[in-house]
Amino acid sequence: MKTIAKSRLNELLKALDKEYNILVPFKEESVSKFVPWQEGVDPYFEENTLLPPKDILFPQTEKMYGFKVKDKSVEIEELTQEKGQQIIFGLRSCDAYSIDCLDKVFLTKGYEDGFYRQKRENTLLWALACTKPQDSCFCESIGIDPREAVCADVQIYDLGEEWGFTARSAAGEELLQKLEGLFTDKDAEPLPVQGFSITVDMEGVPEKLANMFDHPLWEEVSRKCLGCAACTYLCPTCHCFDIAGSVKGGQGYKFRCWDSCMFSEYTRMAGGHNPRPSKKERVRNRFLHKLYYFVERYGQLLCTGCGRCLAKCPVNMDITAIIRKIKEAQQQ
């Protein structure tokens, strides 16, 4: 394993910074998120970030194209900015798994989303192995290994006094080779993962949900939901968006922005009809999407066990408690 003393991390980031835009976890007051690294930005590795790295690849608001009206014709202006290569440095296994989910959504099944692809192709993931699960973490129950991230180009390990690095892709290997001079080669054992305080048994849940669309459970679990989007906007995998435009005089642009299935107007149709008229239908949709529809379409759960939703929901909607209720529910 290639190692570097923790006190020398800046040297590594500086070397990477020459060719890459590096995004590191950073905490300011009570909010932690990924920010561009520069000299003076002290990365925050104590716990996972409040905001997931989702918006790096799928921004909350993203301009798609501009247009100008000239006489009787319309001129379309491409707005995709060519950004350089970037590295998401220090994301956890849960968030790496979420990027795997987003890859499946935006790049497979016959349609490639150009906006996502452009950013994803130019992004390397340097994942950090978790050693200390937070109070709301349950990634292991989802089948995620906190020490080995999917899609990682480089896996980073906490060795106590040092950071250890192992390449997990050809691109990662090449980059580590290039930076050879900074590292010491060493046999090292990564710190073990401490216990999880939340565990949940996922066995058979997607299969059972296939027959629970009309189950009274949804009425019960949705009652306290306020219908805000704290859960979906903090979720690393939620990826719904809306498209709108801004027009000023003869010109404007189209943009897409995050939307949430928890909002009542999310499914409101032009004529005013809403096929998901109440909290029950909306909450049901959210959990069926995460735990059943996505599994059916892509063969994996759309939940990473990061625990952000249950930590930040104003009414403590707890996905693990709902999974337990699904397991206990009598088939109708």
């Binding site: 989007a229 949430s260 104003p314």
Partner: peptide, 10 residues
């Protein structure tokens, strides 16, 4: 602000 509307809805 991430415009989740938790403030309004609560």
């Amino acid at each position: 602000c991430i415009r989740c509307y938790a403030c309004r809805n609560v």
